[in-house]
């Protein structure tokens, strides 16, 4: 124990040091993961049949013209040289240009990122709120409430998001024209109200399935938490029941829920293609589908990099959140 310091302060310092080391370790792993994935995506793109010249000039182009084009964009250079050049551009804030129409990739993806991100964030938050409420209610109330929530969440969990989307569109946009069936309105163009209206149906479609998964996880972990030893001790000490349930047990139960939410955000972000096609949203999923079908290599590579970064950052945030909620994780 440090001289002149009280025991709790020293513990906090040790805990802070442990947390900082934990954060540093996770950050290093995250950077390494992004770096590795950039190499893999680069290699995959180069292992694919075809070349930028063949894509840009089309099927009928002369081999000599394709060769000239490939030479002009450095496609014939050694892979290491090409990768280092791409990395250099990346460090200078450039993701290169599309080989189909020469537009700067970063500008295009930055315009699309808010669409996918706002959809994934909103759906995750909505499914977290609804899922935790339902899961906790099922665990705490038990009986009919528990059975009803379990059945509804079980059914909802098995529904494909695109089918839920079709049903929502039918009832809320076609039969009762309350919300737009397709399209995205940015907050700058349509204000917050217009933006929210344009995202409501896709977010609902994704959140209904997501909330069901969260509810089932929340219910199971809450039931475990309520029966945990330290909760029984708190009860024996006379701690009020509401405090036991909604402070101590809920905190204990939130670790798996946070993990599930993290996974869900990653899945929603990287798997947004279907929702974006169904609702005609100009997001990253739509861009990745278009780039893959037109063999626009640099765009595919850039989207893979962004998706990987999102996954890694989300995992980092989730790890840190779990570390804060559960001190045992930090030490491990």
């Amino acid at each position: 124990m440090a001289a002149g310091r009280s025991l709790p302060a020293a513990i906090r310092l040790i805990q802070r040091g442990t947390m900082l080391r934990y954060i540093g370790r996770r950050l290093l792993i995250a950077i390494g993961t992004v770096f590795t994935s950039s190499i893999i995506s680069f290699l995959l793109v180069h292992a694919t049949k075809g070349s930028p010249g063949a894509v840009a000039l089309g099927m009928g182009a002369l081999p000599s013209d394709i060769g000239k084009f490939n030479q002009s964009v450095g496609w014939n250079d050694p892979w290491v040289t090409q990768y280092l050049r791409w990395l250099g551009h990346l460090l200078h804030g450039s993701l290169g240009e599309s080989i189909i129409d020469s537009r700067p990739i970063l500008d295009d993806l930055l315009a699309r990122l808010p669409v996918t991100a706002s959809m994934a964030f909103s759906a995750t938050i909505l499914s977290a709120v609804v899922g935790v409420l339902l899961g906790v209610a099922a665990a705490v109330r038990g009986g009919f409430v528990d059975r009803a929530i379990s059945v509804v969440s079980g059914v909802s969990f098995s529904l494909p998001a695109f089918w839920v989307g079709i049903v929502l569109v039918y009832f809320l946009a076609i039969v009762h024209p309350l919300l737009p069936a397709t399209g995205y309105v940015s907050p700058m163009d349509g204000g917050i109200g217009g933006w929210a209206r344009s995202l409501t149906l896709p977010v609902l479609a994704l959140a209904i399935v997501g909330a069901a998964g969260v509810a089932r996880t929340a219910r199971a972990s809450m039931l475990d938490a309520i029966q945990a030893e330290h909760i029984r001790t708190l009860r024996a000490m006379g701690t009020p029941e509401w405090r036991i349930r909604y402070v101590h047990a809920l905190r204990f139960a939130s670790v798996p829920v946070v993990a599930v939410l993290g996974m869900q955000f990653v899945l929603l972000f990287s798997g947004s293609v279907v929702a974006e096609q169904l609702f005609a949203l100009p997001g990253l999923g739509q861009a990745s589908a278009a780039a893959a079908s037109s063999h626009d290599f640099p765009v595919v590579q850039a989207i893979v990099l962004i998706a990987t970064t999102v996954v890694v950052v989300t995992n980092l945030v989730i790890d840190l959140a779990i570390g804060m909620l559960d001190p045992k994780v930090r030490v491990a």
Binding site: I166, V169, A173, I174, P177, P180, A181, T182, G183, Q277, L278, F279, A280
Partner: peptide
Amino acid sequence: YRTILNSQALANAVVSGQV
């Protein structure tokens, strides 16, 4: 010009007024 690749989504967009 709004690109809506799914034909049913395109029909929905007309019915619900976005197109």
